[in-house]
Write a protein that binds this DNA or RNA. Structure first.
Lengths: 192, 192
DNA sequence: TCAAAATGATTGAACGTTCATTCAGAGCTT
DNA sequence: AAGCTCTGAATGAACGTTCAATCATTTTGA
Protein backbone atom coordinates (compact mmCIF):
# COMPACT_ATOMS: atom_id res chain seq x y z
CA UNK A 1 0.00 0.00 0.00
CA UNK A 2 1.76 3.13 -1.15
CA UNK A 3 -0.26 6.12 -2.25
CA UNK A 4 -3.66 7.31 -1.19
CA UNK A 5 -5.05 6.41 -4.58
CA UNK A 6 -3.96 2.84 -4.08
CA UNK A 7 -5.78 2.66 -0.77
CA UNK A 8 -8.89 4.04 -2.39
CA UNK A 9 -8.67 1.40 -5.07
CA UNK A 10 -8.16 -1.29 -2.47
CA UNK A 11 -11.37 -0.25 -0.73
CA UNK A 12 -13.24 -0.19 -4.02
CA UNK A 13 -11.93 -3.61 -4.97
CA UNK A 14 -12.91 -5.10 -1.62
CA UNK A 15 -16.39 -3.63 -1.71
CA UNK A 16 -16.87 -4.84 -5.26
CA UNK A 17 -15.79 -8.37 -4.41
CA UNK A 18 -18.06 -8.55 -1.39
CA UNK A 19 -21.04 -7.28 -3.37
CA UNK A 20 -20.26 -9.70 -6.17
CA UNK A 21 -20.16 -12.59 -3.75
CA UNK A 22 -22.79 -11.69 -1.16
CA UNK A 23 -24.92 -8.90 -2.64
CA UNK A 24 -25.56 -5.39 -1.34
CA UNK A 25 -26.91 -6.94 1.80
CA UNK A 26 -23.91 -8.90 2.98
CA UNK A 27 -21.28 -6.25 2.44
CA UNK A 28 -20.87 -4.50 5.80
CA UNK A 29 -18.32 -1.72 6.13
CA UNK A 30 -16.53 -3.75 8.78
CA UNK A 31 -15.81 -6.50 6.25
CA UNK A 32 -14.92 -4.13 3.45
CA UNK A 33 -12.37 -2.59 5.79
CA UNK A 34 -10.99 -5.95 6.86
CA UNK A 35 -10.65 -7.17 3.27
CA UNK A 36 -9.01 -3.91 2.25
CA UNK A 37 -6.60 -4.02 5.18
CA UNK A 38 -7.71 -0.70 6.65
CA UNK A 39 -9.69 0.37 9.68
CA UNK A 40 -13.40 0.94 9.32
CA UNK A 41 -13.02 4.65 9.96
CA UNK A 42 -10.57 5.02 7.10
CA UNK A 43 -13.25 4.30 4.56
CA UNK A 44 -14.92 7.54 5.63
CA UNK A 45 -11.96 9.63 4.56
CA UNK A 46 -12.47 8.32 1.03
CA UNK A 47 -16.25 8.20 0.92
CA UNK A 48 -18.96 10.20 2.61
CA UNK A 49 -20.90 7.11 3.59
CA UNK A 50 -21.66 3.60 2.43
CA UNK A 51 -23.97 4.69 -0.36
CA UNK A 52 -21.30 7.03 -1.65
CA UNK A 53 -18.86 4.15 -1.62
CA UNK A 54 -21.18 2.03 -3.74
CA UNK A 55 -21.56 4.84 -6.26
CA UNK A 56 -17.77 5.23 -6.13
CA UNK A 57 -17.38 1.58 -7.06
CA UNK A 58 -19.79 2.04 -9.95
CA UNK A 59 -17.92 5.09 -11.23
CA UNK A 60 -14.62 3.22 -11.16
CA UNK A 61 -16.09 0.21 -12.87
CA UNK A 62 -17.82 2.11 -15.63
CA UNK A 63 -14.63 4.00 -16.38
CA UNK A 64 -12.70 0.77 -16.68
CA UNK A 65 -15.35 -0.55 -19.03
CA UNK A 66 -15.13 2.62 -21.08
CA UNK A 67 -11.37 2.22 -21.44
CA UNK A 68 -11.60 -1.49 -22.20
CA UNK A 69 -14.34 -1.17 -24.82
CA UNK A 70 -15.12 2.35 -26.02
CA UNK A 71 -11.55 3.55 -26.39
CA UNK A 72 -10.67 0.50 -28.47
CA UNK A 73 -13.34 1.32 -31.02
CA UNK A 74 -12.19 2.63 -34.37
CA UNK A 75 -14.95 4.71 -35.98
CA UNK A 76 -13.18 4.58 -39.33
CA UNK A 77 -13.91 0.91 -39.84
CA UNK A 78 -17.09 -0.41 -41.45
CA UNK A 79 -19.81 -0.76 -38.84
CA UNK A 80 -20.09 -4.51 -38.99
CA UNK A 81 -16.43 -4.83 -38.18
CA UNK A 82 -16.81 -2.36 -35.31
CA UNK A 83 -19.72 -4.38 -33.98
CA UNK A 84 -17.85 -7.66 -33.84
CA UNK A 85 -14.83 -5.93 -32.30
CA UNK A 86 -17.12 -4.35 -29.73
CA UNK A 87 -18.60 -7.70 -28.92
CA UNK A 88 -15.19 -9.26 -28.54
CA UNK A 89 -13.94 -6.47 -26.30
CA UNK A 90 -16.90 -6.42 -23.97
CA UNK A 91 -17.04 -10.22 -23.70
CA UNK A 92 -13.36 -10.38 -22.95
CA UNK A 93 -13.65 -7.59 -20.42
CA UNK A 94 -16.38 -9.35 -18.48
CA UNK A 95 -14.66 -12.69 -18.73
CA UNK A 96 -11.41 -11.27 -17.40
CA UNK A 97 -13.15 -9.31 -14.65
CA UNK A 98 -15.86 -11.47 -13.12
CA UNK A 99 -16.16 -9.29 -10.00
CA UNK A 100 -16.86 -6.29 -12.19
CA UNK A 101 -19.52 -8.16 -14.05
CA UNK A 102 -21.09 -9.50 -10.88
CA UNK A 103 -21.16 -6.04 -9.42
CA UNK A 104 -22.56 -4.42 -12.55
CA UNK A 105 -25.19 -7.12 -12.94
CA UNK A 106 -26.54 -6.36 -9.51
CA UNK A 107 -26.06 -2.61 -9.58
CA UNK A 108 -27.76 -2.08 -12.92
CA UNK A 109 -30.84 -4.04 -11.85
CA UNK A 110 -30.98 -2.48 -8.39
CA UNK A 111 -32.71 0.66 -7.16
CA UNK A 112 -29.25 2.28 -7.03
CA UNK A 113 -29.38 2.51 -10.79
CA UNK A 114 -31.26 5.71 -11.55
CA UNK A 115 -31.29 8.07 -14.50
CA UNK A 116 -29.27 10.49 -12.39
CA UNK A 117 -26.44 7.98 -12.06
CA UNK A 118 -26.31 7.74 -15.85
CA UNK A 119 -26.08 11.50 -16.14
CA UNK A 120 -23.24 11.59 -13.65
CA UNK A 121 -21.31 8.99 -15.64
CA UNK A 122 -21.98 10.07 -19.18
CA UNK A 123 -18.88 8.69 -20.90
CA UNK A 124 -20.01 5.10 -21.29
CA UNK A 125 -23.71 5.75 -21.78
CA UNK A 126 -23.21 8.49 -24.34
CA UNK A 127 -20.66 6.46 -26.18
CA UNK A 128 -22.90 3.40 -26.57
CA UNK A 129 -25.76 5.56 -27.79
CA UNK A 130 -23.53 7.18 -30.39
CA UNK A 131 -22.13 3.82 -31.39
CA UNK A 132 -25.55 2.55 -32.43
CA UNK A 133 -26.52 5.89 -33.97
CA UNK A 134 -23.44 5.53 -36.20
CA UNK A 135 -24.60 2.11 -37.28
CA UNK A 136 -28.03 3.45 -38.14
CA UNK A 137 -26.69 6.49 -39.99
CA UNK A 138 -24.49 4.26 -42.11
CA UNK A 139 -27.45 2.05 -42.91
CA UNK A 140 -25.72 -0.96 -41.45
CA UNK A 141 -28.31 -1.72 -38.79
CA UNK A 142 -32.05 -1.30 -38.44
CA UNK A 143 -33.40 2.17 -37.69
CA UNK A 144 -34.46 1.37 -34.16
CA UNK A 145 -34.15 3.43 -31.01
CA UNK A 146 -30.61 3.04 -29.68
CA UNK A 147 -31.96 2.30 -26.22
CA UNK A 148 -33.53 -0.84 -27.62
CA UNK A 149 -30.42 -1.84 -29.52
CA UNK A 150 -28.29 -1.26 -26.48
CA UNK A 151 -30.44 -3.57 -24.40
CA UNK A 152 -30.47 -6.33 -26.94
CA UNK A 153 -26.73 -6.29 -27.45
CA UNK A 154 -25.41 -5.40 -24.01
CA UNK A 155 -27.72 -7.62 -22.00
CA UNK A 156 -26.86 -10.51 -24.25
CA UNK A 157 -23.14 -9.88 -23.96
CA UNK A 158 -23.51 -9.67 -20.20
CA UNK A 159 -25.42 -12.90 -19.93
CA UNK A 160 -23.22 -14.80 -22.29
CA UNK A 161 -20.12 -13.90 -20.34
CA UNK A 162 -21.84 -15.14 -17.23
CA UNK A 163 -22.86 -18.42 -18.78
CA UNK A 164 -19.40 -18.86 -20.21
CA UNK A 165 -17.96 -18.51 -16.76
CA UNK A 166 -20.52 -20.56 -14.85
CA UNK A 167 -21.14 -23.35 -17.29
CA UNK A 168 -18.07 -22.98 -19.45
CA UNK A 169 -16.66 -26.44 -18.85
CA UNK A 170 -20.00 -28.20 -18.96
CA UNK A 171 -20.93 -26.55 -22.24
CA UNK A 172 -17.52 -27.20 -23.76
CA UNK A 173 -18.11 -30.92 -23.48
CA UNK A 174 -21.37 -30.50 -25.32
CA UNK A 175 -19.44 -28.58 -27.96
CA UNK A 176 -21.40 -25.38 -27.57
CA UNK A 177 -19.95 -22.82 -29.87
CA UNK A 178 -19.99 -19.48 -28.14
CA UNK A 179 -18.70 -17.77 -31.22
CA UNK A 180 -22.05 -18.23 -32.93
CA UNK A 181 -23.64 -15.86 -30.47
CA UNK A 182 -22.49 -12.51 -31.86
CA UNK A 183 -23.57 -13.65 -35.32
CA UNK A 184 -27.04 -14.30 -33.97
CA UNK A 185 -27.16 -10.84 -32.48
CA UNK A 186 -25.89 -9.35 -35.69
CA UNK A 187 -28.65 -11.15 -37.58
CA UNK A 188 -31.11 -9.53 -35.22
CA UNK A 189 -29.96 -5.94 -35.66
CA UNK A 190 -28.53 -5.76 -39.20
CA UNK A 191 -30.42 -3.78 -41.79
CA UNK A 192 -32.52 -5.87 -44.14
CA UNK B 1 -57.93 -10.62 5.38
CA UNK B 2 -59.74 -13.90 5.64
CA UNK B 3 -57.86 -17.13 5.37
CA UNK B 4 -54.33 -18.01 6.37
CA UNK B 5 -53.38 -18.34 2.74
CA UNK B 6 -54.45 -14.77 2.14
CA UNK B 7 -52.25 -13.53 4.97
CA UNK B 8 -49.36 -15.44 3.52
CA UNK B 9 -49.93 -13.85 0.15
CA UNK B 10 -50.17 -10.43 1.73
CA UNK B 11 -46.75 -10.89 3.34
CA UNK B 12 -45.29 -12.10 0.06
CA UNK B 13 -46.76 -9.16 -1.81
CA UNK B 14 -45.42 -6.67 0.71
CA UNK B 15 -41.94 -8.15 0.69
CA UNK B 16 -41.92 -8.20 -3.08
CA UNK B 17 -42.96 -4.57 -3.33
CA UNK B 18 -40.33 -3.44 -0.85
CA UNK B 19 -37.60 -5.37 -2.63
CA UNK B 20 -38.75 -4.00 -5.95
CA UNK B 21 -38.62 -0.46 -4.64
CA UNK B 22 -35.66 -0.53 -2.25
CA UNK B 23 -33.69 -3.68 -2.98
CA UNK B 24 -32.81 -6.57 -0.67
CA UNK B 25 -31.11 -4.09 1.57
CA UNK B 26 -34.00 -1.79 2.43
CA UNK B 27 -36.63 -4.44 3.09
CA UNK B 28 -36.64 -4.95 6.86
CA UNK B 29 -39.08 -7.40 8.40
CA UNK B 30 -40.60 -4.58 10.42
CA UNK B 31 -41.64 -2.81 7.23
CA UNK B 32 -42.81 -5.95 5.50
CA UNK B 33 -45.04 -6.56 8.52
CA UNK B 34 -46.33 -3.00 8.56
CA UNK B 35 -47.11 -3.03 4.84
CA UNK B 36 -48.82 -6.41 5.15
CA UNK B 37 -50.86 -5.27 8.14
CA UNK B 38 -49.54 -7.92 10.48
CA UNK B 39 -47.19 -7.98 13.44
CA UNK B 40 -43.55 -8.71 12.85
CA UNK B 41 -43.77 -11.98 14.75
CA UNK B 42 -46.54 -13.24 12.49
CA UNK B 43 -44.17 -13.47 9.57
CA UNK B 44 -42.35 -16.19 11.47
CA UNK B 45 -45.39 -18.42 11.53
CA UNK B 46 -45.32 -18.40 7.73
CA UNK B 47 -41.58 -18.42 7.14
CA UNK B 48 -38.63 -19.82 9.05
CA UNK B 49 -36.62 -16.65 8.68
CA UNK B 50 -36.07 -13.74 6.33
CA UNK B 51 -34.09 -15.75 3.79
CA UNK B 52 -36.86 -18.31 3.70
CA UNK B 53 -39.34 -15.51 3.08
CA UNK B 54 -37.32 -14.28 0.11
CA UNK B 55 -37.20 -17.77 -1.36
CA UNK B 56 -40.94 -17.99 -0.66
CA UNK B 57 -41.52 -14.86 -2.68
CA UNK B 58 -39.48 -16.31 -5.52
CA UNK B 59 -41.42 -19.56 -5.47
CA UNK B 60 -44.71 -17.71 -5.62
CA UNK B 61 -43.52 -15.46 -8.41
CA UNK B 62 -42.10 -18.21 -10.55
CA UNK B 63 -45.34 -20.18 -10.23
CA UNK B 64 -47.34 -17.17 -11.35
CA UNK B 65 -45.04 -16.78 -14.30
CA UNK B 66 -45.44 -20.44 -15.13
CA UNK B 67 -49.21 -20.08 -15.15
CA UNK B 68 -49.16 -16.85 -17.14
CA UNK B 69 -46.75 -18.08 -19.79
CA UNK B 70 -46.05 -21.80 -19.85
CA UNK B 71 -49.62 -22.99 -19.35
CA UNK B 72 -50.81 -20.80 -22.22
CA UNK B 73 -48.45 -22.48 -24.64
CA UNK B 74 -49.99 -24.78 -27.18
CA UNK B 75 -47.41 -27.35 -28.32
CA UNK B 76 -49.59 -28.32 -31.27
CA UNK B 77 -48.98 -25.03 -33.06
CA UNK B 78 -46.04 -24.42 -35.41
CA UNK B 79 -43.05 -23.27 -33.41
CA UNK B 80 -42.86 -19.79 -34.84
CA UNK B 81 -46.38 -19.13 -33.73
CA UNK B 82 -45.62 -20.51 -30.29
CA UNK B 83 -42.60 -18.25 -30.07
CA UNK B 84 -44.53 -15.05 -30.79
CA UNK B 85 -47.28 -16.10 -28.42
CA UNK B 86 -44.66 -16.81 -25.77
CA UNK B 87 -43.16 -13.39 -26.32
CA UNK B 88 -46.52 -11.70 -26.06
CA UNK B 89 -47.43 -13.57 -22.88
CA UNK B 90 -44.20 -12.91 -21.06
CA UNK B 91 -44.10 -9.25 -22.08
CA UNK B 92 -47.66 -8.76 -21.00
CA UNK B 93 -47.03 -10.56 -17.73
CA UNK B 94 -44.11 -8.31 -16.85
CA UNK B 95 -45.91 -5.20 -17.97
CA UNK B 96 -48.94 -6.01 -15.87
CA UNK B 97 -46.84 -7.00 -12.84
CA UNK B 98 -44.01 -4.52 -12.48
CA UNK B 99 -43.27 -5.54 -8.87
CA UNK B 100 -42.80 -9.11 -10.03
CA UNK B 101 -40.43 -8.04 -12.72
CA UNK B 102 -38.49 -5.75 -10.39
CA UNK B 103 -38.19 -8.54 -7.87
CA UNK B 104 -37.17 -11.15 -10.44
CA UNK B 105 -34.64 -8.80 -12.02
CA UNK B 106 -32.87 -8.40 -8.74
CA UNK B 107 -33.30 -11.95 -7.51
CA UNK B 108 -32.00 -13.60 -10.64
CA UNK B 109 -28.85 -11.48 -10.66
CA UNK B 110 -28.25 -11.80 -6.95
CA UNK B 111 -26.34 -14.39 -4.96
CA UNK B 112 -29.71 -15.77 -3.87
CA UNK B 113 -30.05 -17.28 -7.32
CA UNK B 114 -28.22 -20.58 -7.19
CA UNK B 115 -28.48 -23.79 -9.16
CA UNK B 116 -30.20 -25.34 -6.13
CA UNK B 117 -33.01 -22.78 -6.32
CA UNK B 118 -33.61 -23.81 -9.93
CA UNK B 119 -33.79 -27.44 -8.91
CA UNK B 120 -36.31 -26.63 -6.20
CA UNK B 121 -38.52 -24.80 -8.68
CA UNK B 122 -38.29 -27.01 -11.72
CA UNK B 123 -41.58 -26.19 -13.40
CA UNK B 124 -40.57 -22.97 -15.12
CA UNK B 125 -36.95 -23.83 -15.79
CA UNK B 126 -37.70 -27.24 -17.21
CA UNK B 127 -40.51 -25.88 -19.32
CA UNK B 128 -38.38 -23.17 -20.96
CA UNK B 129 -35.66 -25.70 -21.71
CA UNK B 130 -38.17 -28.03 -23.34
CA UNK B 131 -39.75 -25.16 -25.22
CA UNK B 132 -36.51 -24.39 -27.02
CA UNK B 133 -35.67 -28.06 -27.48
CA UNK B 134 -39.00 -28.40 -29.29
CA UNK B 135 -38.05 -25.56 -31.61
CA UNK B 136 -34.73 -27.19 -32.37
CA UNK B 137 -36.24 -30.65 -32.93
CA UNK B 138 -38.73 -29.21 -35.37
CA UNK B 139 -35.93 -27.47 -37.23
CA UNK B 140 -37.52 -24.08 -36.64
CA UNK B 141 -34.64 -22.55 -34.75
CA UNK B 142 -30.89 -22.93 -34.74
CA UNK B 143 -29.37 -25.98 -33.05
CA UNK B 144 -27.90 -24.08 -30.15
CA UNK B 145 -27.77 -24.96 -26.47
CA UNK B 146 -31.14 -24.08 -24.92
CA UNK B 147 -29.37 -22.24 -22.10
CA UNK B 148 -28.06 -19.79 -24.63
CA UNK B 149 -31.40 -19.41 -26.36
CA UNK B 150 -33.13 -18.89 -23.07
CA UNK B 151 -30.79 -16.09 -22.14
CA UNK B 152 -31.11 -14.33 -25.43
CA UNK B 153 -34.88 -14.44 -25.42
CA UNK B 154 -35.73 -14.08 -21.76
CA UNK B 155 -33.21 -11.37 -20.92
CA UNK B 156 -34.41 -9.39 -23.88
CA UNK B 157 -38.05 -9.78 -22.91
CA UNK B 158 -37.18 -8.74 -19.39
CA UNK B 159 -35.31 -5.66 -20.44
CA UNK B 160 -37.82 -4.62 -23.02
CA UNK B 161 -40.64 -4.73 -20.52
CA UNK B 162 -38.55 -2.57 -18.22
CA UNK B 163 -37.82 -0.01 -20.88
CA UNK B 164 -41.43 0.01 -21.93
CA UNK B 165 -42.42 0.87 -18.40
CA UNK B 166 -39.65 3.36 -17.62
CA UNK B 167 -39.40 5.17 -20.90
CA UNK B 168 -42.71 4.20 -22.40
CA UNK B 169 -44.11 7.69 -22.79
CA UNK B 170 -40.84 9.21 -23.93
CA UNK B 171 -40.35 6.55 -26.55
CA UNK B 172 -43.94 6.74 -27.72
CA UNK B 173 -43.41 10.34 -28.79
CA UNK B 174 -40.41 9.23 -30.81
CA UNK B 175 -42.65 6.58 -32.36
CA UNK B 176 -40.56 3.68 -31.19
CA UNK B 177 -42.21 0.52 -32.34
CA UNK B 178 -41.87 -2.07 -29.62
CA UNK B 179 -43.51 -4.67 -31.79
CA UNK B 180 -40.40 -4.90 -33.96
CA UNK B 181 -38.49 -6.35 -31.08
CA UNK B 182 -39.74 -9.95 -31.12
CA UNK B 183 -39.14 -10.05 -34.88
CA UNK B 184 -35.54 -9.07 -34.29
CA UNK B 185 -35.16 -11.84 -31.74
CA UNK B 186 -36.79 -14.28 -34.09
CA UNK B 187 -34.34 -13.29 -36.81
CA UNK B 188 -31.57 -14.08 -34.36
CA UNK B 189 -32.69 -17.58 -33.44
CA UNK B 190 -34.56 -18.88 -36.50
CA UNK B 191 -32.97 -21.66 -38.50
CA UNK B 192 -31.19 -20.54 -41.66
C1' DT C 1 20.95 21.12 9.86
C1' DC C 2 17.51 19.76 12.74
C1' DA C 3 14.08 20.08 16.30
C1' DA C 4 9.58 21.75 16.76
C1' DA C 5 5.19 22.44 14.96
C1' DA C 6 1.60 21.64 11.76
C1' DT C 7 -0.86 18.78 8.78
C1' DG C 8 -3.55 15.18 7.52
C1' DA C 9 -4.24 10.23 7.28
C1' DT C 10 -5.32 6.24 10.22
C1' DT C 11 -7.01 3.74 13.94
C1' DG C 12 -10.48 1.14 16.51
C1' DA C 13 -13.27 1.57 20.57
C1' DA C 14 -17.59 3.61 21.46
C1' DC C 15 -22.25 5.24 20.15
C1' DG C 16 -26.85 5.16 18.87
C1' DT C 17 -29.66 2.88 15.82
C1' DT C 18 -31.72 -0.70 13.43
C1' DC C 19 -32.16 -5.24 12.56
C1' DA C 20 -33.92 -10.24 12.75
C1' DT C 21 -35.74 -13.08 15.90
C1' DT C 22 -38.10 -14.72 20.22
C1' DC C 23 -41.76 -15.52 23.34
C1' DA C 24 -45.18 -14.82 27.01
C1' DG C 25 -49.56 -13.65 26.87
C1' DA C 26 -53.99 -12.49 24.43
C1' DG C 27 -57.50 -13.73 21.17
C1' DC C 28 -60.09 -16.78 18.37
C1' DT C 29 -62.24 -21.07 16.78
C1' DT C 30 -63.77 -25.54 17.36
C1' DA D 1 -60.62 -26.15 27.39
C1' DA D 2 -57.60 -27.36 23.89
C1' DG D 3 -55.16 -25.88 20.07
C1' DC D 4 -54.17 -22.79 16.95
C1' DT D 5 -52.79 -17.93 15.32
C1' DC D 6 -51.49 -13.36 16.42
C1' DT D 7 -49.36 -9.64 18.92
C1' DG D 8 -45.71 -6.41 19.94
C1' DA D 9 -42.49 -5.49 23.53
C1' DA D 10 -38.08 -7.47 24.58
C1' DT D 11 -33.50 -9.17 23.25
C1' DG D 12 -29.05 -9.13 21.75
C1' DA D 13 -26.33 -9.06 17.72
C1' DA D 14 -24.84 -6.34 13.92
C1' DC D 15 -24.76 -2.27 11.61
C1' DG D 16 -23.07 2.50 9.90
C1' DT D 17 -20.89 6.22 11.64
C1' DT D 18 -18.11 9.20 14.80
C1' DC D 19 -14.13 10.90 17.06
C1' DA D 20 -10.36 11.40 20.38
C1' DA D 21 -6.05 9.68 20.07
C1' DT D 22 -2.06 8.11 17.42
C1' DC D 23 1.02 8.04 13.79
C1' DA D 24 3.69 9.50 9.61
C1' DT D 25 5.00 13.07 6.83
C1' DT D 26 5.95 17.73 5.60
C1' DT D 27 6.81 22.51 6.68
C1' DT D 28 8.74 25.97 9.41
C1' DG D 29 12.18 28.72 11.47
C1' DA D 30 16.47 29.61 13.77
Amino acid sequence: METLQEKRISIIKSGMELINEHGFHGCPISQVAKKAGVAAGTIYTYFENKEDMIYGIFKEVIQKQYKAVALKDNPELPFQERFFKFWENISEFYFQNPEIQGFLDQFLKSPYNTEEVHKENPSWFEWTENFYLDGIRQGAIKDINPIILKILVNESAHSLAKVKRNFGKKLEKKKVDFSSYPFMIWDAIKAN
